[in-house]
Amino acid sequence: MNQGPHSAAGRPAAAVAMTDYEFCSQYDLYGHMACPGCGEKILLRHILNVLGPETVIVCPAGCAAVTDGVFPHSISPVPFLHVPFDATPAAAAGVRAGLDLSGRKHVTVLAWAGDGATFDIGMGALSAIAERNENILYVCYDNEAYMNTGIQRSSATPYGGWSTTTPKGQLKAEPKKNIGAIMAAHRIPYFASGSPAFLDDLTAKVAQAKRLSGLRFLHLLSPCPPGWKADPRDGITLARLAVESRLFPLYEIIEGTHYRLTHESSGAGFDEYLQLQGRFRYMSAGDRRILQADADRFYAQLTLRHNRNGETTVIGEEP
């Protein structure tokens, strides 16, 4: 198993030496409208950092769209196309087609969408571009609810989570949609999950995605302090705890069949993760156990699949 960011000597995990941060700093990313501590902008800057200037962003309604700026201003250092909420995958496919037809095949088309646009309203179109294996890098920054519209549940909201549409007494009763399995079922060349707390893991995955062609999908956890009812300072801490507690394991799926855990989650920090967030305040002890058991089960599946690489893994088969 990949050693992950923790070396044996226990040196700082996120001590990533950014050799090429000029790209983001030479352009003016300042002044964006994201809430203090927003994870989305941390993710975006590091992704752009790897992708470089030959990138076009396609972005639906959502936090990223709203916080990018207001006409006639924008923080984006690369061409940025706003599209309707449900249109990201198709519009990205159109941009791809248009660029290819204009001799710009080398340009990366980055679909940059939240969980609402991805897990819910854009799911049909997403499935379509996955099935067609469009040459797009689709990245979902998942803040686990409709945050921009005021914290409504999405199908990415975790079991037991509070939102304005799953209020106290009617907390979300369904587990988070397994987007990795959905993408794997389409046998896309590359799926990976990522967390802003593990930047070297993240940037390696973005670099890998950039190297490949076809539909590449990154599922990134994006801490949202106001939506998660957490202290803005805890964003990265939460992004780390989510991984360690196995609620958001870091893994890759290659060609839909080959699973690889890229970080060994210790399993610790589950309670702390919930405690630091008001959105889990109303969960009963029983619900917590259900959530944790679900996370552990999923992680065990990943571990099994990881270990079984080399043999044939049958899609959809339960280990």
Binding site: V83, D86, A90, A91, A93, G94, R96, G98
Partner: peptide, 10 residues
Amino acid sequence: STLIGAASTG
């Protein structure tokens, strides 16, 4: 939507 994306590239 695809044409919106494509037409945006000119």
